[in-house]
Simulated scan of single mutants.
Amino acid sequence: MGEISIKINIADRVYPLRVDTEEEEVIRYAAKLINEKIKELQDNYAVRDKQDLLSMCVLQYATGMIKAERSAQDQGQGIEQSVHELDKLLSDFFNK
């Protein structure tokens, strides 16, 4: 559709961005989640420095992403193994 200019506020700083119109909603939602996580960390820990809060936030999201990737990879390997087993069963059946 094209690019648009938007302003995103993260940790009380405004970032002007040019994004595809299809991505605007996702980017705004991501910024909202980041700000909510920063607020949660600020409320639960004695950390006030924005840089520390951003670092903790990024660490939590990166950890979650890595776990999700590993889970998807494990599921993919399980499916691959099942396909190989099914292929062997069918080959054995049709070669009798």
Rank of each mutant, 00 (worst) to 15 (best):
residue 37 K to D: 08
residue 76 G to T: 04
residue 86 L to S: 04
residue 65 M to P: 02
residue 84 H to F: 12
residue 17 L to G: 07
residue 6 I to M: 10
residue 81 Q to K: 13
residue 5 S to Q: 15
residue 37 K to N: 11
residue 42 Q to I: 00
residue 7 K to T: 15
residue 11 A to T: 07
residue 21 T to F: 11
residue 38 I to E: 07
residue 17 L to N: 07
residue 80 E to W: 00
residue 36 E to H: 13
residue 10 I to E: 09
residue 36 E to N: 15
residue 4 I to M: 13
residue 80 E to C: 02
residue 57 C to M: 09
residue 92 D to T: 11
residue 63 T to S: 12
residue 62 A to W: 03
residue 14 V to I: 12
residue 35 N to G: 07
residue 70 R to F: 05
residue 20 D to H: 15
residue 46 A to H: 02
residue 59 L to S: 12
residue 73 Q to M: 04
residue 53 L to F: 03
residue 78 G to K: 10
residue 17 L to I: 08
residue 88 K to H: 09
residue 72 A to C: 03
residue 53 L to C: 03
residue 15 Y to G: 10
residue 14 V to F: 05
residue 46 A to R: 03
residue 69 E to C: 06
residue 1 M to I: 02
residue 19 V to K: 03
residue 48 R to Q: 13
residue 12 D to F: 04
residue 78 G to F: 02
residue 38 I to K: 07
residue 55 S to T: 12
residue 50 K to I: 08
residue 16 P to Q: 07
residue 11 A to F: 04
residue 36 E to Q: 15
residue 18 R to P: 02
residue 39 K to E: 10
residue 51 Q to M: 03
residue 67 K to S: 11
residue 6 I to A: 08
residue 22 E to L: 15
residue 52 D to I: 06
residue 79 I to E: 01
residue 77 Q to D: 06
residue 17 L to Q: 12
residue 95 N to S: 14
residue 17 L to W: 12
residue 15 Y to V: 11
residue 28 R to Y: 08
residue 80 E to H: 04
residue 80 E to F: 01
residue 77 Q to F: 00
residue 39 K to G: 06
residue 29 Y to H: 15
residue 25 E to Q: 15
residue 35 N to M: 09
residue 26 V to N: 11
residue 49 D to E: 11
residue 59 L to I: 15
residue 75 Q to P: 00
residue 87 D to G: 10
residue 11 A to Y: 01
residue 24 E to C: 03
residue 82 S to F: 02
residue 52 D to G: 01
residue 20 D to E: 15
residue 26 V to L: 11
residue 75 Q to N: 01
residue 48 R to K: 13
residue 74 D to T: 01
residue 18 R to F: 10
residue 27 I to E: 02
residue 47 V to R: 04
residue 15 Y to K: 11
residue 91 S to A: 14
residue 18 R to M: 14
residue 38 I to L: 10
residue 79 I to H: 00
residue 81 Q to I: 06
residue 23 E to W: 07
residue 63 T to G: 08
residue 38 I to P: 08
residue 33 L to S: 09
residue 12 D to I: 00
residue 83 V to E: 00
residue 75 Q to V: 00
residue 89 L to Q: 10
residue 4 I to Q: 13
residue 91 S to N: 13
residue 8 I to W: 04
residue 76 G to P: 01
residue 23 E to Q: 15
residue 51 Q to Y: 00
residue 39 K to N: 08
residue 7 K to Q: 15
residue 48 R to A: 14
residue 81 Q to A: 14
residue 79 I to M: 06
residue 16 P to D: 09
residue 6 I to S: 04
residue 51 Q to P: 00
residue 43 D to M: 11
residue 64 G to L: 14
residue 63 T to C: 03
residue 84 H to W: 05
residue 20 D to A: 12
residue 94 F to N: 09
residue 51 Q to C: 01
residue 40 E to V: 08
residue 13 R to F: 01
residue 35 N to K: 07
residue 6 I to Q: 05
residue 62 A to E: 07
residue 31 A to P: 04
residue 95 N to P: 00
residue 57 C to W: 03
residue 21 T to A: 14
residue 50 K to Q: 02
residue 70 R to N: 10
residue 19 V to N: 05
residue 17 L to F: 10
residue 67 K to C: 05
residue 28 R to C: 06
residue 63 T to Q: 12
residue 30 A to T: 08
residue 15 Y to C: 13
residue 44 N to L: 13
